[in-house]
């Protein structure tokens, strides 16, 4: 097994996961993006135009934003995530207790999903168009990526803690300690960081449907990467083991 073999598989799986991500986002998410844009338009029609960086000068028409544009974003993000997960998995293979390459790769993707997608979503959930204020985009971006970064660092540290406890205390205690450390740290950080409060009178149903669609999309993306990559890495390992077994048999004859 080589870093290159992992990366190639990660990019391939990421690309395919990007297609699944796009399909999910398009089918499950787009109706609620459109609904939110209608809320925005209704607002813009009553108030004199003060918000709306989209409506006044649309460089890219909506039909392209919701198809090729969404596809571009989905494929790009899923592909780089696939490659990143693959390289992290390459670093952890054979280093997580007695977990097989298939298992440790799946674990990396699972931890990645929690730390990169799920927990940031719980603190700073995705918001449909018309919810955020243009004035706060700087602060919201900093907070989101700051929290994301902390989450990843804490997840790495918590995993490291679990690995250190693994030999002496067993998988159950080590896993529990790692999860507990991560949860406690993230609850503390989350409660210290500012909340976003910009909803106004945006319809709660539309907001919930959009957010549900968003987390579903992220879940599909990470699941596709995790399952796909664990499968390919497992097959690679099986093949290499078969080669080694044949060689040993030949040497013993």
């Amino acid at each position: 097994m080589t870093a290159r073999a992992f990366l190639v598989r990660g990019l391939l799986v990421g690309l395919l996961a990007g297609l699944a991500t796009f399909a999910t986002a398009y089918v499950v998410g787009e109706p609620h993006v459109e609904a939110a844009l209608q809320v925005e338009e209704a607002h813009a029609a009553t108030e004199t135009d003060e918000a709306g960086h989209h409506d006044d000068v649309a460089v890219v028409p909506r039909t392209q934003q919701r198809t090729l544009g969404l596809l571009t974003g989905s494929l790009s993000i899923a592909t780089v995530l696939g490659g990143t997960v693959a390289l992290v998995a390459a670093g952890t293979v054979g280093r997580v207790g007695r977990l097989s390459p298939r298992q440790s790769t799946g674990l990396v993707a699972l931890i990645g999903f929690v730390a990169v997608a799920l927990v940031p979503f719980l603190k700073y959930p995705a918001s449909p168009p018309a919810v955020g204020s243009a004035d706060t985009i700087g602060a919201r971006t900093t907070d989101y990526f700051g929290f994301l970064l902390v989450s990843v660092v804490v997840a790495v540290l918590a995993t490291g803690l679990a690995l250190r406890l693994l030999d002496r205390h067993g998988a159950f205690t080590a896993g529990l300690a790692g999860v507990a450390a991560y949860v406690v740290a993230m609850v503390a950080v989350g409660s210290l960081m500012p909340a976003v409060d910009e909803l106004g009178d945006f319809p709660a149903d539309t907001l919930w449907y959009f957010r549900r669609a968003s987390i579903a999309t992220l879940t599909v993306m990470w699941a596709a990467i995790g399952i796909g990559l664990a499968g390919l890495v497992g097959r690679l390992h099986d093949r290499e083991r078969a080669v080694v077994a044949r060689r040993e048999l030949a040497a013993s004859l």
């Binding site: 991500t21 986002a25 998410g29 787009e30 993006v33 918000a51 960086h53 989209h54 000068v57 649309a58 460089v59 890219v60 392209q64 934003q65 919701r66 090729l68 544009g69 969404l70 571009t72 974003g73 989905s74 790009s76 993000i77 997608a117 940031p120 979503f121 700073y124 959930p125 995705a126 918001s127 449909p128 168009p129 018309a130 955020g132 204020s133 243009a134 985009i137 700087g138 919201r140 971006t141 900093t142 989101y144 990526f145 959009f210 669609a213 968003s214 987390i215 999309t217 992220l218 993306m221």
Partner: peptide
């Protein structure tokens, strides 16, 4: 994040092209 909090290059074309992915994948937008 491009052409949202920071703009390289200036304008809104990139922002608008990937706009729906930005919202649905959970990144802060408008």
């Amino acid at each position: 994040a491009d052409q949202g909090a920071v703009s390289v290059p200036s304008g809104t074309a990139i922002h608008e092209w990937v706009h729906d992915a930005r919202h649905l994948l959970g990144y802060p937008c408008h």
